[in-house]
Write a protein that binds this DNA or RNA. Structure first.
Lengths: 230, 230
DNA sequence: TAAAACTGTTACAGAACTGTCGCAAAAGCG
DNA sequence: CGCTTTTGCGACAGTTCTGTAACAGTTTTA
């Protein structure tokens, strides 16, 4: 998921005219847009670079929108990507069937562009903060609190519970200096009695873990005051 | 063990007639249903026992649907609960506004019951895929919540009921770390008193079942935090 | 109704993690 | 530069956390 500033939207639509209109409007909203002509191509592109959301035409050559949707929804890696199904078939049966196959939303042609955009925003909003969970990033360090995983330069690191909490504390406020007392408070807990110098030891352990495979030391020692990250 | 099979839906609607119809249909689909007469009551009930999904009428005394929705979406604990907004106002402006306030879906009265049900299912699927009879796949593990079958590398596995629910929980959010308490909540049920360490034992059993015919251990132990899949 | 399958607890062993200490190294200071 | 203070860090004993086997009680199945 490349979610930086501008969400990536995959537009799967075989009709050039429709594609043009949508493409234009999506770009105007600040999205990055990619096209696929048919289902096959769409599946490939999803595998290549998973988009943040997919707008999917129901009727398509090669692999129907319904089938694409079903395939996307089975696999864990792609299941959470919102799919908005676009269809000229306004029959209730079709709408229901569209939703049943796993589409997150179903919009009937001719649709209001404004509403479609609103639905796209609504679906995007859901995915971004929650599924991404709380991911902290500082330089090349990533800390995912949902999966409890820490990587540096895409290398998975092995941290003990205390080191994990310590790093999380630092990453919440990169650059800020924490005194040993503050760290004891936040990482160990308010009413635990632990020797002040113990912090040093854990800082050392965290350092070793972070620099394990070479890479500069991002933990700054502030003499007389405490420690800081970056 | 009854509690967790059926998703809980909170229906917020002040008009008795509407409520009756919806309530009946939801129950017929196998959902557990709770009512709230107005916004205030709804907020209380959510705090009491968070439902899996909320159906929310736009116009209500005391605290409008829009306001309820906004409040729900602000709090981290309730943000992920899907909200389906029900409204007689079919103006595009309203639909857009409804979605903008954070509703996950917007349905216009008079609505088709069948479609509404489909939308409810679609929204639930996102949060609790296994409750809606989906097939989940993670790596080479395949879990069919409809037939209650689990295969690994196309080999049928033999799991007890508890292990099945445990695995389903993990597969709904691959990678996410669940604490033992959370697992007890979701797998055993909110108000069942069971020893925390029991979770370990079942994790062990699930491990043995999954790795039975050789294959790496996909259940990750996160010391001091809990367990995760993959 | 008996056999088989499943559950929750417990106990114990081993693994992982923690907190302290002591001493060496580094940094400040006059 | 010599002295004092502060940090870094290896070693280690103690503690906490996990994996598992065993077992007795229940529920399901045949």
């Amino acid at each position: 998921m490349v979610t930086k500033e501008h969400p990536l939207i995959l537009l799967v639509e075989d009709e050039p005219a429709q594609r043009e209109v949508l493409s234009y409007n999506l770009a105007a909203e600040g999205y990055r847009v990619q096209h696929a002509q048919d289902g096959e191509e769409a599946m490939l592109m999803v595998r290549e670079e998973p988009p943040d959301l997919i707008v999917l035409d129901w009727m398509m050559p090669n692999l129907s929108g319904i089938e694409v949707c079903r395939r996307l929804k089975v696999r864990a890696e792609t299941r959470t990507i919102p799919v908005i199904m676009l269809s000229a078939r306004s029959e209730e049966v079709d709408r229901v069937r569209g939703l049943e196959t796993g589409a997150d939303d179903y919009v009937v042609k001719p649709y209001s562009i404004v509403e479609l955009m609103a639905r796209i925003r609504a679906n995007l909003r859901r995915v971004r903060p929650s599924a991404t969970g709380m991911v902290l990033e500082v330089q090349d360090i990533r800390l995912d609190s949902e999966t409890h995983r820490v990587t540096r330069a895409d290398q998975l690191l092995q941290l003990g519970p205390t080191e994990f909490r310590l790093l999380a504390t630092f990453m919440e406020r990169p650059g800020r200096v924490f005194s040993r007392e503050q760290l004891l408070d936040r990482v160990w807990g308010r009413d635990i009695y632990v020797e002040t110098r113990t912090v040093d030891v854990h800082i050392g352990r965290l350092r070793k873990a972070l620099c394990g495979q070479g890479g500069e030391d991002l933990l700054r020692t502030v003499r007389g005051a405490g420690y800081a990250l970056g």
